[in-house]
Design a protein around this nucleic acid. Structure first.
Lengths: 113, 113
DNA sequence: CTATCATTTCTATGAAGGTAGAAATGAGGT
DNA sequence: ACCTCATTTCTACCTTCATAGAAATGATAG
């Protein structure tokens, strides 16, 4: 991962609403959530939410997919991991720190569970 | 860790220079670095760097300590871990993701090594 | 107590980010 | 074809952030 995209990703997360959106999607898992559902769940006006979703998407942190009438958003887990790894790279001058992926893409719950 | 402080921490890191500073300190380990050394290493004017250091410090990501004439800065590893953990909390709707501390405070290199 | 050095605060200026109502878009259903 | 609904783009406003030179601070050494 590159410094520029890390800054973008961090900047995308460094905002109350966007952090809430991202976490909601992280917790929603592979199933994702529609823009409208997010807006209602978090109490954010549609136009504002749309702005924030665009930022998160532009930063590569979330993925968009149309499903019938709604646009479904999902967390991009590999991107999140890249971020975490970047921050801890070469950590502590090599003093026994293990920096690795924290969360792999969930595979075992494709619209079942 | 609380949402507000997470936003602050992410905001602090979401800037080219501050991210560079933080990584430099993460890599410097427990030994830390003086403000002047950082300014020179990263090619940032003193006054600008001071502004950024204050932001990082205010966000709780770095620690300050006077050592003779210089102010030494060190990464706050527990704070960093809190951040990483927060992002991955309740990850993937409980689909087998292990979110935990990635880097503990380095203990084995106190001004030796 | 004074000189010196590292660092911070002050200041002004320019750029970027956040908000939310209203209008526009674009896909689906009938 | 038409209507409807979900979502996005447009717009305008205001707030916050980044920058860096110059002056001020605060600690140490002599």
């Amino acid at each position: 991962m590159q410094a520029t995209s890390v800054v973008e990703a961090l900047g995308a997360l460094a905002q109350e609403h966007r952090l809430a959106v991202f976490r909601q999607l992280v917790q929603a898992g592979d199933r994702g959530m529609a823009a409208g559902a997010l807006a209602e769940a978090l109490g954010i006006p549609n136009s504002s939410l749309s702005f924030h979703l665009a930022q998160l998407r532009n930063a590569g942190l979330i993925l968009q997919e149309r499903q019938h009438r709604s646009l479904i958003y999902r967390a991009n887990y590999p991107a999140m991991n890249g971020l975490l790894v970047y921050l801890t790279e070469n950590c502590c001058a090599g003093a026994g720190c293990d920096a690795g992926a924290v969360c792999e893409t969930p595979a075992q719950e494709r619209k079942s569970a």
